[in-house]
Design a protein around this nucleic acid. Sequence first.
RNA 1: GUGGGUGUAGCUCAGUUGGUUAGAGCAUCGGUUUGUGGUACCGAGGGUCGAGGGUUCGAGCCCCUUCAUCCACCCCA
Length: 456
Amino acid sequence: MTVASIPRGTRDFGPDIVRKRNYIIQTIRSTFETYGFEPLETPAMENIETLTGKYGDEGDKLMFKILNNGDIYSKGAQATTNQELINAVSEKALRYDLTIPFARYVAMNRSQLTFPFKRFQIQPVWRADNPQRGRFREFYQCDADVIGSKSLISEMELLSIYSRVFEQLNLQVEIKLNNRKILAGLAELAGIADRMMEMTILLDKLDKIGPEKLHELMLKAAFSNDAIACIEQFLAIKGTNETVLLALKELFKHTEIALRGIDEIETVLKGYQLMQQGDKPNQLAIDLTLARGLNYYTGIIIEVKSAEVAMGSIGGGGRYDDLTGIFGVPDMSGVGISFGLDRIYEVLLELNRFPDTTKNGTKVLFINFGNQAETTALQLVQAIRQETIAAEIYPSNEKIKKQMEYANKKQIPFVVLIGENELQNNQVVIKNMASGEQQTVSIATFIQHIKELFSI
RNA sequence: GUGGGUGUAGCUCAGUUGGUUAGAGCAUCGGUUUGUGGUACCGAGGGUCGAGGGUUCGAGCCCCUUCAUCCACCCCA
């Protein structure tokens, strides 16, 4: 016998959970479609060389590799390093995110596509990470990307999508904004342009570890005193978006790349305000420490966190100027965002914000009395379904008690009883399971009664 | 990969300095009720105490190993 279990970091989704997840997915999907994005799905697995090297060393480590079939032993036996072994026995890997597969798709189909191409994709991704709260090894991403346009209108629209989705989900969030060009400018100004990645990863830790600890880490990284002073001057910039922008312009007045980044943020902020007029927009805040790990971002970067629950980010994105270049298609600028479905689920659950409609299931259960009564019940259950009311008949003539228990456990709000007594009088009994009340109605008016119960 | 916590009934957990036959609540099943669930009462089933080894007259409890799981770091959605 096999012990029933699933790999850690993976989950089964029971009926209640699927209904709640579908609610989130439908909210996101319909918003994507409203903004003109088209659906795309790609395979769970990609050729391993499509994915390796795209997410940094850490990403390569966390990628699930698929073992080749056949005789891998003799091929693997000749390997002298871990990497050689992987090359010898694996040529496929599970996708690590949706963006690189999307870039691959665009590169493969560029002649068929109409640009700018706007696609959304809602599929699971896999990472061989250590699971913990809000972190799984199989989880869903809900991505929307625009590729083939440099216009900042895309950024504005994607931010607007964030705002709209979280408003519809009744969640308060902080949408944080930064620009890789500003970070590049900072690295340049600090004289450590060659170590920008290292610097941004350190900056990203600031709100977690505090300025003193950050100072220590920068010393440890052997940044010069001048460089550290420059970075700390940068981090001291605080206030409203307007004052931050002003201070940035002053600090970077001779750093061209940063100025462009500042200008982009300013443009996007203005456009966003314009688009959100009339709505109560989620506030955008410039966060100069926002870095984001994925190293293909080149312009504006975005991150969303819950304002109500302590959780990692529940969404993120940014612009990448040359994503398809690695697949031989240069100069394709794209910008995208991603929703972390699983984390949004955890947040909604914790705040108890799922609407009652996610409890939907069967609305009416017909008790099975067997024989002639069963035949009548079968006809009536089908008639109810014609009205698109979810209904079912208990499949066998069990004790009434057992059938009632079934209705109770499935939280079915109404039960219909048609026994011999009712049959003789051409009547049925409708029982309200919440109140316990029951009414006897004629078969002729039964459908009408049911429709009234559901206000149809 | 690093550090810490926890593994006892289907679930959540008690279990005294190491001492007889390992308990509770919930859940399940049966009954009070052969045409009525949810509430109440009565009863029943259910355990290799994660696994393996060791110490001991005796181990759920102590020691070692191992596995699983959770939390944190790294990194990330």
